[in-house]
Write a protein that binds this DNA or RNA. Structure first.
Lengths: 254, 254
DNA sequence: CGCTTAATTGACACAACTCAAATCTCGTGG
DNA sequence: CCACGAGATTTGAGTTGTGTCAATTAAGCG
């Protein structure tokens, strides 16, 4: 799972997140989760309304500013996080500092699932974001009580694996133009067209991050985007929005 | 599990640790699976001896020559295969014929798990191999009857995902020398040392395949191996076996 | 509105690729 | 058991797509 649209540049408050608010009468038992924007996605989508109390009592939402680390590669994996809004980048770092972004996470994506005790990657917000924290033990308990959660986890992991293998193909075989074209096409499939119906993509992350995702330097990315623009395939609307003028050209290049 | 840099331990998020291997061979009722070399690995490792009849009746072993395709990318995914012996390469192909090997499968690895109805990659033997076929519906039934199988599947998929992300790091960031060094080290961790105790790796696949896995041309791979040999890090024993003379040099290069 | 950071552009370098030829491997048949 | 031939591997020479370095321009923010 990866990119998508997202929004706010608005700042949010980091420090002390409010614990579960006291609940009200009728709807109370379902708690905060009932109205969550990611309610039907990720892990939570595997649960029925009646199960929501299990979620509400074991998870806690967090508002995060941009550039805030959520999990750190190698650190003890004590919790998983479901993205409710915003966007995060997931990356691995080599000893000498080189970084490879393995994906971008958006609403519904789950971050921090670990094979062993340590996180496999660092996750950091690229825009102000809201994530929902659940301890690993709570997740384990949730899986035991609700087998569907395990199935959902398997489904999500399988999709991620498939995406990772696509990325391996991209990084192992494709040229710079092909990588960028593939990236823009993949994004455009997940985002809504403009008012006039032409497809467009929103790129809230800095160019250097897109480059780090595609295995390219920002300079190379910049040159490729210019080339695609000259070729009439795209138009740069703003720094963070691109209109796809001719998907066919991109398809041909990807 | 395709081999890659991280031969991680058991999943922590995921319940099922490795059950003890079957103790007695006297259970004829369990049929062919009881003596299988992959009995304790892959999916089968999630089952206890008493469950083996379920396996024996729904799976079927196949002996394959080298260069035999087992599943084809995009084809309807009707079955999964557990590798019992030998080695297979898994790869994706671009429209113009470029191929990227996403992994090599050896004993215990499961091939053909698909997110949607089509296989995500082509799998082809690189040596004569034996695989065990199980239809998708049989697998589904097995999962229903034995929840541990689903857990095992999740664990295996998670390990694969982690390996895929390591490969993304390798392809996105590393130089040719770093790629080859990482590859040799990862292999050496999984293979037994020579009689005299020095670590060595066995490379039954052609060099062009190793290159296709590392995102390198065979010529480049050849030159890198020569450089590592001159540097005293390795020795070419035969065409398909390399002795690691100095792991530290490889570590430094990886 | 000024300052800091991000993005772009240009000039150049180099790691890896391409093309081509030589050499090695290994299975096969005599 | 050895010679043969097809394919694999290695080596060489030259090319090129990206990376690197540096300077300029644009964008975001207080």
């Amino acid at each position: 799972m990866t990119f998508s649209v997202a929004a706010a540049t608005t700042a949010a408050i980091v420090p002390p997140p409010i614990p579960a608010p006291p609940t009200r009468a009728a709807e109370t038992v379902t708690g905060r989760c009932a109205g969550c924007s990611a309610r039907s996605k990720g892990l939570c989508g595997a649960l029925t309304a009646g199960d929501l109390p299990d979620l509400s009592t074991t998870s806690r939402p967090l508002d995060l500013l941009s550039a805030t680390p959520v999990v750190m590669e190698g650190e003890e994996a004590e919790a998983v996080f479901t993205v409710m809004s915003g966007m995060l980048k997931l990356y691995k770092t080599l000893p000498d500092g080189r970084q490879q972004i393995t994906g971008f996470a958006t609403a519904g994506d789950v971050i921090g699932l670990a094979v062993d005790s340590g996180y496999a990657y660092t996750a950091e917000t690229v825009t102000a974001s809201t994530v929902c924290r659940m301890s690993r033990t709570a997740l384990r308990r949730l899986m035991e009580r609700h087998p569907a959660v395990q199935g959902r986890l398997l489904a999500m992991t399988s999709v991620e694996l498939s995406a990772a293998q696509d990325q391996i193909l991209l990084l192992g075989c494709k040229t710079a133009v092909e990588r960028v074209s593939s990236f823009l096409l993949a994004l455009s499939r997940r985002s809504r067209p403009l008012a006039d119906g032409t497809p467009s993509v929103f790129l809230p992350m800095p160019k250097v991050d897109i480059g780090a995702y595609l295995g390219l330097r920002p300079e190379t990315l910049s040159r490729v985007l210019r080339k695609l623009e000259v070729a009439g395939a795209i138009t740069r609307l703003t720094n963070d929005r691109i209109r796809i003028e001719d998907p066919a050209v991109l398809e041909a290049a990807a």
